[in-house]
Design a protein around this nucleic acid. Structure first.
Lengths: 219, 219
DNA sequence: GCTCGCGTCGAACGGTCGTTTGAACGCGAA
DNA sequence: TTCGCGTTCAAACGACCGTTCGACGCGAGC
């Protein structure tokens, strides 16, 4: 913001104290790996190599820290989805086909989850937040449907013949496919198939998901 | 087991102490409603109207109580699924079509979740266990894939032309549709659609899910 | 040079947790 | 009636939790 040499990719916020960043990163990592309730403030500060009181000093409370990570990551993810949807619309005169809409929703979290992507841990965090998050976080998830409305609207434009009710239900099923992409489920699938399924290739997985979802949506 | 007049529908176990049953029911209810970590032993025993020490006396520990509920409910659910799959096979000379196989997997938890079904709370418990459960429970989920193998095998028989790899992946997507059927997601969908979607009619929801899943699987 | 404010530090506080203890209780069998 | 055993009870234990406190270091500004 002041010094253009600082290539801080974080939000629009000013450069933060190194301690605050260390706490943020350590907390996101530990929460993603072990769950919210299983990680104590002492665990976080130990991992970050900072003093115990840092969490409360910089974030107010453990819950507030959690919420800030959650808010930032979901914001980033939804912005990327919106950008892809916008690009798909630009490619198709404002009316992208179903498959392109679904891809805009599927692709960002899949690419983030790539093993060589440092955002992999963020995806795991968001997934955990969906089920283990505090009441405040679930409230946000429940009420902030604006980004979903964009996708629902695009789907209705792509299939104006389909009753809106059907669009919503099928969108719900599509969301389920995405939310189920936890690492534990991949492990289970890998175990079930005797090693036949490999999740390494993100593009191949994306194609599989799109094939399934597109056919399901157009059933 | 001894007296045929006892119509105890529980497992194969003998009639248990009323206290143990009360603890079991209260724990399942509270865990399903508020999550595992957010419910204390004191909450459970207070809800059940029994002494604090009852949990440790009858179940050994809080985790063991959790695990016993989990084990019993998943066992019941998978047994019902297996029964439906078996009936579908009997109806089709041992080779049921894709739709009937999927129905055997979808229908039991949906019927349990019916508002007038007292097993509704059990479904909620199982769903929570999938994401919030202890390492031991997740280990069971990961390793006990025998019931999934039945469904994978049936699907391969129904679509012998499909590479096994594809069958596993599409089964994975199908599972995602089921696991996403939490009440919070229904609320969100209801909110998003402006009240257009109503989950009251289980049979209608089952038909919607089958339409989507069948088309996706046969993509 | 002094002060002020920000960040960090060790230490502690109050509370809740799961679990354990040992005594009391209920009740059928000897 | 007494014994034995399974169950229930009130009470406490030790551990861990999130949070707060007061002191301290230190660079910037008057």
């Amino acid at each position: 913001m002041t010094d253009p040499l600082i290539q801080d990719p974080s939000e629009t916020e000013e450069a933060e104290a190194a301690t605050k960043q260390a706490v943020f990163n350590a907390a996101e990592r530990l929460f993603a790996l072990h769950g919210f309730q299983n990680v104590s403030v002492r665990d976080i500060t130990a991992e970050a190599g900072v003093n115990l009181a840092s969490v409360n000093y910089h974030f107010g409370s453990k819950d507030a820290l959690l919420f800030e990570i959650f808010r930032r990551r979901t914001s980033e993810l939804n912005r990327e989805r919106a950008r892809m949807l916008h690009e798909a619309a630009a490619r198709h005169d404002g009316k992208p086909p179903v498959r392109d809409i679904l891809e805009a929703y599927f692709a960002p979290p899949l690419r983030w989850a790539n093993p060589d992507n440092d955002r992999r841990i963020s995806v795991q965090f968001i997934i955990r937040a969906r089920s283990e998050g505090t009441a405040e976080m679930r409230e946000v998830l429940r009420n902030d449907v604006s980004h979903l409305e964009r996708f629902a609207g695009a789907l209705m434009a792509a299939r104006p013949d389909l009753p809106k009710e059907d669009v919503y239900w099928r969108l719900h099923f599509v969301l389920g496919m995405v939310h189920n992409n936890r690492f534990a489920e991949f492990d289970r699938l890998h175990h079930l198939s005797g090693g036949l399924t490999r999740e390494g290739d993100v593009d191949a997985l994306l194609k599989r998901m799109l094939d399934f979802a597109e056919a399901g949506f157009n059933a």
